[in-house]
């Protein structure tokens, strides 16, 4: 894929993020400044999702629903959903039952695909727009932005909804990967029009440049939330293994 030398510029029209105890932009400003930590209470108020659908959303699905309720419940625009591990707690439960030769829960099995949360919420939102569900290792955030850019280049597409989310891994896996300290979800609307919110530029950068500013300990989605909620933080760089990317705020 080729892209302009000067980078790709688009606008973050609106955003909402949530984690246990961190549910509004003010909370995230305080979290970014080190003044507030996530709580243990895992419940999110998602009354907009009808009860019969709501019961099928786990904690992660409810976190995603919560952010959509804030900014995009009635927005019928293409969306890109991205998660490194998906609903991993549910996946782990199914795999454990398989290993123990117990019957699998049909409801959980039917939702054991990567686009399950996106699909269920599209039913709840009565939205028939196109959905893309991505998983791209540690590069998820960046691949999501590139995918959204590709979709914004399609004729007739003015805005794309981006949603990125993950939950902590079951203990068995943490000796291999332990990259998600707490359940979190971030939704934002990307717009082609430069005057619709915070303009940002996405650029490929060389490895040496990127390595000095890399933060390997914080999941990219949480770094991105910090970037959005901190006025003095003007850029973030990718921590993944493939191309190196940098996102900067533009005037």
């Amino acid at each position: 894929m080729s892209y302009p030398e000067s980078g790709i510029t688009f606008c973050i029209k609106d955003w909402a993020a949530c984690a246990p105890g961190l549910t509004c932009q003010q909370d995230w400003q305080e979290w970014s400044a080190g003044k507030k930590a996530p709580s243990v209470d895992q419940s999110f108020d998602v009354k907009q999702v009808p009860p019969m659908l709501r019961r099928r959303l786990g904690t992660l699905g409810k976190a995603v629903a919560y952010t959509l309720c804030q900014i995009a419940w009635d927005a019928h625009i293409p969306s890109v959903f991205c998660s490194r591990h998906g609903a991993i707690q549910q996946t782990y439960k199914l795999l454990s039952d398989l290993a123990d030769e117990k019957p699998l829960s049909p409801a959980h099995f039917s939702l054991s695909v990567h686009n399950a949360i996106a699909g269920m919420l599209s039913i709840a939102r009565k939205d028939v727009s196109s959905i893309t569900a991505l998983s791209a290792g540690t590069d998820g955030l960046w691949q999501m932005l590139l995918e959204a850019y590709g979709q914004l280049e399609q004729p007739g597409v003015e805005e794309v909804l981006c949603v990125i989310y993950d939950e902590p891994l079951p203990e068995l896996y943490t000796r291999y990967v332990n990259d998600t300290p707490f359940t979190h979800a971030l939704s934002f609307v990307l717009s082609k029009q430069k005057d619709k919110g915070q303009a940002v530029t996405l650029k490929s950068v060389d490895l040496h440049h990127a390595s000095s500013a890399r933060d390997k300990d914080t999941p990219p989605a949480l770094q991105f939330i910090r970037f959005l909620s901190t006025d003095t933080l003007n850029q973030i760089v990718s921590t993944g293994h493939s191309n190196q990317w940098m996102l900067s705020k533009t005037e």
């Binding site: 019969m52 019957p103 409801a107």
Partner: peptide, 17 residues
Amino acid sequence: LGLDSIDALELGIAIQK
């Protein structure tokens, strides 16, 4: 109650257990 076909399967397994 408004249950669906997946609920029927789920309930079948619960009754079996």
